[in-house]
Structure formats: C-alpha cells, structure tokens
Nucleic acid binder design. Structure first.
Length: 486
RNA sequence: GCGGGCGUAGUGUAGAGGUUAUCACAGGAGCUUCCCAAGCUCUUGACCCGGGUUCAAAUCCCGGCGCCCGCACCA
C-alpha cells in the first residue's frame, strides 16, 4: 500500500474524512469531514487566516451564489461552458468550433441539440485521425442554479475571488484608501469536475482560501523579500533551481516582488502546518496551461507518493479593469494624484488539498508497524490525552478529575481509560496527539504525572499543578521537556 | 466522459450456486494489568443497489452507483 492508500484507510477508520452519502451508494466528488477531520481542517484554516491577518490582510465573506453578469465579466461563462467533441476512435477532444473550422464551416452553433443535428447531417472529421464525428456535448464546469422566478441566471461560484473584486472599492475605503492591500476570503467553491478522483484532491465542492493582493501595476511591490528559506523553483524556461526568494527575484526567475513575497509566505504556511519542506516545490505554469485570467502563475506543489500535486496557485491577474468596463464603476485608486487600477497577485489555497497533503507528509509507520501522524501541535485535533495507567487504586477517578480541570484551560484534551496503556498510546499516536498525560502511583504520592511525547515516545514527570494552571501547549514544564528532546 | 479491474462487518480479508457467511484487527462490557496495540471471558457488527436466470444467488447474467488504474479533463 502506498501512503495515499494508508492515509485513506486511516482517515475513514478514525474519522478524518470519508466519501459522502455512502449508505445511498455514494456520490462521487463529495467528501465528509469526520470528527477529527473537522478539527484538523479548522486548524489548517486558522493557520492560514492568522498568517494573513499578521500580514495586515483583511477578510470578507460573500455569497456562494453569484449572478451571471459577474461571471460574464470575469470570463468564466465564456471559458467554462464550451461545446466540445470527443472523437469516437482516438478520443481526441476538441472544441466544437475548432473541429468545424477545420471542416470548412464557419457556423456558430449555440446548443448541444443544434450541434448534434448539424453533425448528423454534415460530415465533420476529427482533426487528428479523420474519423467522422457525430456527437457534441456541452462541457459545463460551473453549476447553474435552476431557473428562479424573480431573478436572472445564477451560478455557484467556481472561485471566491470575484466576491472580493466586486467589493474592491468598499474594501479599499474601509482600508482607508491605501495600497497595497490584501483581502482574504475563506469559503466553498464549486466545480463540475468531469471525473472527480483522489478523494480530497478533486472534489466538486471544495474549501478555498483565496487572497487577493492589490498592488501598484508598475511595481507589484508588497514588502522587502526575506532570504532565509531555501525553496525549490521550477521555472517555465530554464532548469530547476534551489534558491531563496530574494535571489530568485534578483535573478529574474520571479517577475515581481509581490509574487516572490507570497511564494515565500506560502512556503512558510505549508511548512508550518506540517508539510515536509523538501517535498514542496514551486512550479511556474507554462503559457498554455495558464487560466484565462492569468498572465503568470506559480503553483505550490506537494510530492504525494510519486506525483507532484498542486496545492496552492499564485496567479498574476487583472480583473478590476474588466469589472470597471462592465459596470462603469470606477475601480481606480488615487496614487500620487493619478488614478491607478491596481494589479492583483492572488495566492489561492486549496484547503482540502492542504489537509490531505499534511496527513500524507506527516504519516509514518514505526518499525513495529504502528502508525503515527507526526502532526505539529498547532494542527493536531487533540493536544493531549489524559490516561490512568491502570483502572484501580482510584487512579481512574483522579484521571477524570484532572481531565476536567485541564479542559478549563484547553478543551482539546481527550480522556481514555479503556484497554492497556500501550494501546491507548498507540491510539493517540495514530491521530497525531502530541502528548499523553499518564497518572500512576507517584501521582498519588507526590502529585506528579508523566508526559509522553508522541514522536520520541520519551517521558518526563511534570506537576499536576502546572497542568491545572497552564493546560498543555503553554505549559512551561511541557515546553521545557519538549525543548530537551531536540 | 471512454477503456480495463474491483465492490463481503468500522478496517483488512476468506468463500466462486446449496444449513446459523471465514478469519484477524478495531469497537463495547467485565476480569486482569504500574508504561508502549499483553492475556482471559462475554459481546455488537457485513455480502453496494435494482432486475433477471435458478427449486435455490454473496456466488452466474444485465443495468445502475461507487472505488482503483490508464486516457481525457482539471479556470
């Protein structure tokens, strides 16, 4: 079994995530987060959000349902509902328009029915192998809301970004007219994937964390570039290079300060939630794979088993002008007495992909075959578990009482008294709980407990008092123990 | 969406027309247990869905749904 399969098995068994609606046969493209998964996902979101708040970013929350006009402007309507053909022989897929032109027809067909009728009555051939094509299909990548009585067409958003763009002026006013400005939005996006696969990697309903950084178009500057992180870059022209982002910018690998800055920031966020830095790289998209709105894009990719998977996309885009042209509403900002429409650097995070990647990057199997998630404290669903060594001499009761007291300081603490102590440690290792607090005979005598650290399995004695006073993560005795391990 | 493979307890599996569907782990109750899935007793729990063939289907056939692998798609 590869790591992906092992993580999927663990996720379902312990309650991180599983396929949705399985008692009704399942519905592909949808996954539920289980009890532990919700906690993990929330922690990932918190790490992401706090990283941008600390950057001076502001947040917004806009509807998932969006009027058609917005997506006409953004180009999504045009780009995401193509009539297309699929060659019956070689399965080469083309836009209907392309195939028609190659067969000498300039007709523009609007609907699937119209196209099918034309293809039945005229000879249109596959541009690759020459086989006659008889059928067209409509490739719709956005979900359309069924006709409503009192409104025009509505769609489920395929990205959250437009909710920020359409509010640009209001946001910038709230931000007191300053640039650069970063606005983040967390929310669901919806994409009608043709074949959703790989669990959380390709869902029809996904959690997105998008940040729109509005910068001056001539400089695209955010902040001075740091040079502490060594990052693997794969530029579209030229060889793979291992470099800090400052040199990458100075050497022309990265085109703007802001792009470089947020590449580096993304690297740090991914590292902080538990992805392995050596298995992260930034790959620049080739011109033919760029989204319709993007002129340059760097993808953060994580190595999952043997393939590199896009986790975050950082695009250089320019949507404000389009909205200004479409609505007549000014999107410009006064800068040094001239009106400037800002450019946009957009780091777009796939929250679900981050969650799956961190499970895969932190998963490992001990020599005794026990499974461990080496989750950072900041994302682990539980910070600690309280365990009586044995269920006698009143230890179980003492453990319950201590658990109650710790909960007042930190709610993310589990209690378990079933099975043997070893079994309970193993259970916690498997869900990534960093510490286990065990009460034993000495607890009765001297009011101390052992704390066991997950990765080393080493233990230290700490006072009951410190737990009651400080909980787990800010506990000075636990901190001291943890530091002694490195 | 196309082609191929596969759907049996929570997980991993055995069974290839015929009594109460195998085994392990996990789960629950109890006993035991002073530190890493120990042991003992008891116990919960499954043939993806629908149709067909048959005296009889988890098993054979057809359809659906789902998963996996390729191709395609992936703003």
């Amino acid at each position: 079994m590869n790591v992906y399969e092992q993580v999927i098995e663990l996720a379902k068994r312990r309650g991180f995530f599983w396929p949705s609606y399985s008692i009704y046969g399942g519905e592909s493209g949808f996954y539920d987060y289980g009890p532990l998964g919700v906690m993990l996902k929330d922690n990932v979101i918190r790490a992401w959000k706090e990283a941008y708040i600390a950057e001076g970013g502001i947040m917004i929350d806009t509807p998932v349902i969006v009027p058609e006009a917005v997506f006409r402007t953004s180009g999504h309507i045009e780009k995401f509902s193509d009539l297309a053909t699929d060659c019956p022989k070689c399965h080469n897929r083309e836009k209907l328009e392309t195939v028609m032109k190659a067969s000498g027809s300039e007709l523009v067909l609007k609907s699937e029915d119209e196209a099918n009728e034309f293809l039945q009555n005229n000879t249109v051939k596959c541009v690759k192998c020459g086989t006659r094509i008889m059928k067209a299909y409509e490739s719709k990548q956005m979900f359309k809301i069924p006709e409503q009585v009192n409104s025009g067409n509505l769609y489920l958003r395929p990205e959250t970004a437009q909710g920020i763009f359409v509010n640009f002026k209001l946001l910038n006013t709230v931000f007191r007219g300053k640039l650069p400005m970063a606005v983040a939005q967390l929310g669901k996006g919806f994409r009608n994937e043709i074949s959703p696969r790989q669990s959380l990697l390709r869902m029809k309903e996904l959690n997105m964390g998008e940040v729109e950084v509005f910068v001056l178009p001539d400089k695209k500057y955010w902040k001075e570039l740091p040079n502490g992180d060594q990052i693997k870059f794969v530029p579209k022209n030229g060889p793979e290079i291992f470099s800090d982002v400052k040199s990458a910018f100075e050497n022309g690998i990265i085109s703007s300060n802001a792009m470089g800055y947020f590449v580096n920031k993304t690297f740090r966020i991914l590292k902080s939630i538990g992805l392995q830095p050596e298995n992260i790289r930034f790959r620049q998209q080739h011109d033919d794979e760029l989204a319709h709105y993007s002129v340059d894009s760097w993808d953060a990719e994580a190595l999952l088993d043997d393939s590199w998977v896009e986790i975050v996309g950082i695009a250089d885009r320019n949507d404000l002008k389009r909205h200004q042209d479409a609505t007549g509403e000014s999107m410009s900002v006064k800068v040094d007495n001239s009106d400037i429409i800002p450019s946009i650097i957009e780091p777009a995070y796939g929250i679900d992909r981050m969650a799956l990647s961190l499970l895969m990057h932190t998963f490992y199997t001990r020599e005794n075959s026990f499974k461990v998630l080496r989750l950072p404290e900041s994302v682990a669903p539980y910070h600690a578990a309280v365990l009586p060594l044995v269920n006698k001499d009143g230890l179980d009761e003492m453990a319950r009482e201590l658990h109650e007291k710790i909960l007042a300081k930190d709610p993310y603490v589990y209690f378990d008294q079933s099975g043997s102590i070893g079994k309970r440690y193993a259970r916690q290792d498997e869900i990534g709980t960093p510490y286990c607090i065990t009460l034993d005979q000495d607890t009765i005598k001297e009011k101390t407990v052992t704390v066991r650290e997950r990765d080393s399995t080493k233990q230290a004695r700490i006072s009951v008092e410190s737990l009651v006073q400080h909980g787990i993560l800010d506990n000075p005795e636990i901190l001291k123990f943890r530091n002694s391990l490195n």
